[in-house]
């Protein structure tokens, strides 16, 4: 079984992702359903989907300050941030809250 999730980018984040605002992705086999977390997803997104400027997306292990992450329309701070276990058909939104995107 594989995980299929929807990623959305707005507030200027889409500029780093080839101007795509929404993208449905099927994660590779390495992501085990039930144990794969956001901590694994973020580097995968950076390496596979990001088209420009990795340092504007991530800082260390996590996203850069000023980028808001919503998991199924809920703040990721409430969902355990990087420890959140990805479920099938999740919607993960990245919004840049920085001035000018």
């Amino acid at each position: 079984m594989t995980l299929t999730i929807t990623l959305e980018f707005s507030g200027g984040m889409e500029l780093l992702f080839n101007n795509e605002k929404s993208k449905q992705v099927t994660l590779p086999e390495t992501f085990t359903p039930g144990s794969a977390t956001l901590k694994e997803l973020l580097p995968w997104v950076r390496d596979n989907l990001l088209t420009e400027r990795a340092e504007l997306f991530m800082q260390g292990e996590t996203v850069r300050p000023g980028i808001l992450v919503l998991i199924n329309d809920a703040d990721w701070e409430l969902e355990g941030e990087l420890e959140y276990v990805i479920k099938d058909r999740d919607t993960i939104v990245f919004i840049s809250t920085l001035h000018g995107g």
């Binding site: 707005s10 200027g12 889409e14 500029l15 329309d73 919004i95 000018g100």
Partner: peptide, 22 residues
């Protein structure tokens, strides 16, 4: 950002001089 997302308020992207810069 959260309010706009919840209330589906569409914002136009407004690049500045320093958009996408370090």
């Amino acid at each position: 950002a959260v309010f706009n997302r919840f209330e589906q308020i569409h914002a136009v992207l407004t690049p500045e001089f320093t958009t996408g810069m370090p």
